[in-house]
Nucleic acid binder design. Structure first.
Lengths: 313, 313
DNA sequence: TGTTTTCTTGTTACCGGTAACATGCATCGT
DNA sequence: ACGATGCATGTTACCGGTAACAAGAAAACA
């Protein structure tokens, strides 16, 4: 492997001058800069990260910790993690992927966490690295989507589209976002009937249980807490031979399944995953540069994405 | 940050002895071993990876390069990448995630690549690191699923179940696996009608195009090249009010969508993702230890996974 | 012209760890 | 009782890079 010393020899300068060309080019005369650059190119020199990390105590590596088991198979995870990897790469950082907080974290500059639950709080707070979580998290910086606002958007859209009865299809409440979305459904000007709130276990066969449960009056709008639930509802309607979107409207949340996945694209509340990724990274890099751990809660607003499962112009 | 020297001081021994306790404990007397361990625990020492990497020229870091854009949102990607991360972690390695071969790879011991196309060959062959790809790749070690065998399995299953007419639902052939699966469908004892082979562009609304295209005779078995296509076919059948699995059987390939995703679990040919991950990692670590780049092509056989979309006992 | 400032480059030491060799001491064989 | 052998530990040097300081030369100032 060609090192900085090899380049120095080739260019007839000291190691330090080569280092300057790489890190503080303004301190180097034009001639020498060119000579060194030429030598670098000729020899195909690339910086040794370990050496640099050791000398500067900075590794330019970020750990992304993915705690949610389910998320691994959920498309939005792949989307988020790749956005983050891309953005970090562009900023000159490398992203490690971890699945547990039990790992020793060596030689990293900061940590991004997704899918943390309350039971992880202690471990999270014990970490001394700059930290940003996806989803609200006490005692740490976090980036989240405004779940309640998103659901309100969904309700409003269904009402505007002329659906008369609203049904909410929610998940178990053990995850924070599930509670927030339910709250969003309950808390708004548009009144809702408590009998029309259903809760589905995440591993149910959604469509099967729905087709038995729901008595779909005409002009019903279904607000689903996730796109997966919305997809189940769509199946149920197909089986039950309901006309979607004419008689029944369906709106989901997340914005992942909308493409290619069904006979109809879903109308959904789309999470701005790219902006989430950007916010997480920029917040983290800021902490790293400033060398302070701050705990802002950044909340991004999701957007209505029109599809075929609701009426609209 | 507490370093090996701090531990050495605390334990009244030399740095080297501490290093031995960590790396060659058999060379150290029992007493001193205990003393040093105590000091390590008291001080909460963790090894500095950069220092170690610099001294040993090993980083214990592997780059996973995910080239396929689509894969990022496909659940199997999340599954594979997390399996690999888990296995690597257990072996004491860290996994970096990259999205491009253009990145400089610093301080890594080896590379895993998924989603490479022919156009990536030049860059892949230029890499000097130990390398294993997912999917067949000339000039590099690879792990792949026996796509043709899988499709034959699917055909056989449908015939055994009593479906009389077979239809193949395939993808564009620009990816190697798509070709292999089509070949598997054509090449077998069970004869097929060339008119019953359909090709769907990956961004089509599968169900919509199918319901217009297919003239489903009773007792038709549909072999779909991917679970996503199978799901589309299932939609199409629902819309067209075909009885699945009584009149029409559907079998997919990949084994990802089977849970929770529809009114019926898919019968599918499941990729052994966990074994794929294991094979990729063990092949790579072997190359790293042996310090030779070998190019075996490891082919794993997928398995029939029964679901509700075909008849069986 | 002599002195100070500025600019460019080099020297030294260190980041945290480990390999290779050196040393000191106990055990062994004869 | 002596050197030979083996075992446990320490010393030195180096991995590749950079910060802090030193030094030399050119430019600026008086």
């Amino acid at each position: 492997m060609v090192s900085i010393s090899d380049v120095a020899k080739q260019a007839h300068v000291s190691k330090m001058t080569v280092s300057r060309v790489l890190n503080h080019p303004e301190q180097v005369s034009k001639e020498i800069f060119d000579t060194v650059q030429t030598a670098i190119n000729e020899l195909g020199y690339v910086q040794n990260r370990a050496g640099r990390a050791l000398a500067t105590n900075k590794s330019y590596t970020i750990a992304f910790v993915m705690l949610d088991e389910v998320a691994a198979v959920d498309p939005y995870f792949g989307q988020l993690v790749t956005y983050i990897a891309d953005i970090l790469n562009q900023a000159g950082y490398t992203m490690e992927l971890h699945r547990s907080l039990d790992n020793d974290f060596h030689a990293i500059d900061g940590i991004l966490v997704s899918g943390a639950r309350e039971s992880d709080d202690a471990q999270l707070n014990a970490l001394t690295y700059p930290l940003v979580t996806y989803g609200e998290q006490a005692g740490a910086a976090s980036v989240d989507v405004d779940n309640a606002a998103g659901i309100k958007l969904a309700k409003q859209h269904l009402v505007d589209a002329g659906y008369e009865q609203l049904i909410y299809l929610g998940l178990d409440l053990d995850e924070q976002f599930a509670q927030a979305r339910l709250d969003g459904f309950l808390d708004s000007e548009i009144p809702v009937d408590q009998n029309n709130i259903y809760r589905i276990a995440n591993d149910d066969h959604i469509a099967r249980s729905l087709v038995q449960t729901l008595q779909l009056a005409p002009k019903t709008g279904i607000v689903a807490a996730t796109d997966r639930l919305a997809l189940g509802a769509l199946y149920a309607c197909l089986i039950d031979q309901q006309a979607v979107p004419q008689d029944v409207g369906i709106i989901g949340f997340d914005g992942i399944f909308i493409h290619q996945m069904g006979p109809l694209t879903l109308t959904t509340i789309a999470q701005p995953l790219e902006r989430i990724a950007e916010a997480m990274v920029s917040q983290l890099l800021e902490q790293i540069e400033q060398q302070v751990r701050t705990n802002p809660h950044i909340v991004l607003t999701p957007e209505l994405q029109l599809g075929d499962t609701t009426l609209h112009n």
